[in-house]
């Protein structure tokens, strides 16, 4: 393996990659511009009523209005606050429980039927009970997020821990890693790549559910913004709300994708 040749090849690869990167950035932006232009054009050419489909210019104006009054910011914060709490509580519960059950076949056999029974029930089906038990406000919304994240995350952690190679456990045994160290040095890092995939998927789910929950249980948040705008027949605000939800969902995904590039997560992909 000539180091020199390796270097040169690396340099070449980097050049090709950065070209790819540029295209990667320009093409999606171009798509967005084209879609918006097409939308505006269709609305004007067929003179569609703004009550049915407002053009993007109107949506932007509505969003600007909401932003100026501070409502948009307050509602976004309210939604993010609920998602953050529900998501972190669920992850904090699912990871240790999942690791424990993943290593304990008997426990898995006992609890798996309950988990598999509760998992397919949509969190939204819990809304009546959530309001009944926790009242109106942030608590039922956080509870719904918790449910939406907890079960898929638990199944993911359980599966990834149960699938850890025996060799890794043997190495741990051989070098006397037991108890707490076994978990931090072997079990968690071995399962981490799959856990991160779970984190990413469930964050998307959480964002999906919060909007639906806010349509019913609370009087703030981006979900509420949409319901409120519908009641006053402001379709420009409805679509504006949808746009903001989409952008934040995208941003959350971008942030959590960073986790996938950490060396302690990347090893699994690099192995193949």
């Amino acid at each position: 393996m000539g180091e020199d040749g390796g270097e040169r090849k690396n340099g070449f690869m980097k050049g090709a990659l950065s070209k790819c990167r540029q295209a990667d950035r320009i093409l999606p932006a171009l798509t967005v511009v084209v879609i918006i232009a097409l939308w505006e054009w269709v609305v004007r050419i067929f003179s569609i009523s703004p009550g049915v489909l407002p053009p993007p210019s109107r949506v932007a104006a509505a969003l600007w209005g909401l932003a100026k009054s501070g409502v948009l910011f307050d509602y976004t914060v309210a939604s993010l606050f609920r998602v953050t709490w529900g998501y972190f509580l669920a992850v904090a519960a699912a990871v240790p429980i999942g690791m424990f059950l993943g290593l304990w076949p008997l426990g898995r056999a006992v609890f798996n039927p309950i988990i598999q029974f509760l998992r397919p029930i949509s969190p939204l089906a819990w809304i009546p009970l959530a309001i009944l038990w926790l009242g109106i406000g942030d608590k039922p919304a956080v509870f719904l997020i918790f449910l939406a994240v907890f079960f898929p995350m638990l199944v993911c952690v359980m599966g990834s821990v149960a699938g850890i190679k025996v060799t890794y456990f043997r190495i741990a045994q051989n070098f006397g890693l037991t108890g707490y160290r076994l978990y931090t040095k072997v079990v968690l890092p071995a399962a981490l790549p799959e856990i991160v995939v779970g984190l990413r998927i469930t964050l998307g789910t959480a964002w999906l559910v919060i909007v639906a929950a806010e349509m019913i249980a609370v009087k703030s948040g981006l979900g509420y913004l949409i319901v409120d705008a519908r009641n006053s027949l402001r379709m420009d605000r409805v679509i504006g709300g949808m746009v903001v939800i989409g952008i934040i969902g995208l941003a959350l995904d971008r942030i959590i994708r960073r986790l996938e590039t950490l060396p302690s997560v990347r090893w699994k992909r690099m192995q193949r």
């Binding site: 190679k165 060799t167 890794y168 043997r170 190495i171 045994q173 051989n174 070098f175 006397g176 890693l177 040095k185 072997v186 890092p189 071995a190 981490l192 060396p263 302690s264 090893w267 699994k268 192995q271």
Partner: peptide
């Protein structure tokens, strides 16, 4: 049972892939 005095060298994948060379070797001097 296994003992830290009797070390096993595996067929393949005997290193913990999330640890560097240094960290893997360090397992032996804990």
């Amino acid at each position: 049972g296994p003992s830290p005095r009797h070390i096993f060298v595996f067929q393949e994948d005997g290193l913990l892939p999330w640890m560097t060379t240094r960290e893997n070797v360090a397992l032996g001097v804990r």
